[in-house]
């Protein structure tokens, strides 16, 4: 096999590829949410990592205080956090409509610091364990590698979320409104579509996706106040690489960057933390609008 020629046991290679695929799945779901939000609000949502963390904490809280299991949390947490997001949009972000992008960045960055600060104060920075759901413990030996069921599920669930989002955007009437609202919100509103409401829903949906990713991550990482801020920097690099314009671009770039990161861990472990930023720098030089971005 090729891998033997290169001197790496297949277990190592495929193990890292799986890890990369899982990270890529998180990048995809998070950058997808950012793309949806940027499309309608023209805001780079720096609170995204904190909202991802809120999703994980909501799942943890539902289990801790209400005894609700993972499967309930997987649906309930995105709804709860999404509703919180809609409140943020309605009462804070909406006030920034029409002003420079920089203000949206500052406000959402500030919100992230406040939310994370509150959770550090309440729960400490170290994190809470969250059990893997019983149905998905263990795994299967595929011969060339061991696949833990839960990790496989994370990839499948992320792809389902991405596919559903793509379907909504590209194949439904609501999606046509969202695309039109991204291009020319004023004209869409003059046609009789309640664009302010659409914008609130889009923010809620993007935030809901972040929370969904947070719940998926809870059993893998730990539920800790800073889990989002560690991840979000890479996600922003992914968004820059893919370009803000496209749903498909966010998904493909997210998965691809996860895989590249995984491969780099095999071949040159020291570079694995930087490789995505290297790709970002190259893309910025060659295609400033991103791989899938529309050049304005």
């Amino acid at each position: 096999m090729l891998t033997d020629l290169l001197g790496f046991p297949p277990q190592v290679l495929f193990g890292q590829l799986l890890l990369g695929l899982i990270n890529g799945a998180f990048y995809a779901v998070l950058s997808l949410g950012l793309a949806v939000i940027f499309g309608l609000l023209n805001i780079v949502n720096f609170a995204h990592g904190a909202l991802y963390m809120l999703g994980a904490f909501t799942a943890w809280g539902l289990a801790q205080f209400l005894g609700l299991n993972y499967w309930v949390a997987l649906f309930a947490a995105p709804v709860i956090v999404g509703a919180f997001g809609m409140g943020l949009e309605r009462f804070l972000l909406r006030r920034l409509a029409g002003v420079d992008h920089l203000y949206g960045l500052l406000l959402t960055f500030g919100l992230a610091l406040v939310i994370e600060g509150v959770f550090i104060k309440l729960f400490g920075a170290s994190g809470q364990p969250y059990p893997t759901p019983a149905a998905l413990t263990g795994g299967i030996n595929l011969g060339f590698m061991f696949l833990p069921w839960y990790r496989g599920w994370v990839v499948v669930a992320s792809l389902i979320a991405c596919g559903a989002t793509w379907y909504i955007f590209e194949r439904t009437k609501l999606g046509a409104y969202l695309r039109a609202g991204t291009e020319n919100p004023k004209l869409l509103q003059a046609f009789g579509v309640n664009v302010p409401l659409l914008t609130t829903l889009a923010y809620g949906y993007g935030v809901g996706l972040a929370a969904f990713a947070g719940v998926l991550a809870a059993p893998i990482t730990q539920v800790s106040p800073l889990m989002g801020s560690n991840l979000i920097i890479v996600v922003f690099a992914v968004v820059v690489i893919g370009g803000m314009g496209s749903i498909m671009g966010a998904v493909v770039t997210g998965l691809a960057m996860g895989l590249i990161e995984g491969l780099t861990k095999v071949f040159w472990p020291e570079a694995s933390a930087t490789v995505i930023f290297l790709v970002m720098a190259i893309v910025l030089v060659l295609r400033p609008a991103g791989l899938f971005g529309r050049v304005a």
Binding site: R179, A180, L188, Q189, F191, V193
Partner: peptide
């Protein structure tokens, strides 16, 4: 718009990310 007003802007305002039929079906 819901009072029965239809507006056709000077720049036409055709949406690039929508197909012809989606553009046609867009206004509620």
């Amino acid at each position: 718009a819901h009072l029965g007003v239809g507006y056709c802007p000077e720049e036409r305002g055709i949406f690039a990310s929508l197909s012809v039929e989606e553009n046609l079906m867009l206004p509620p």
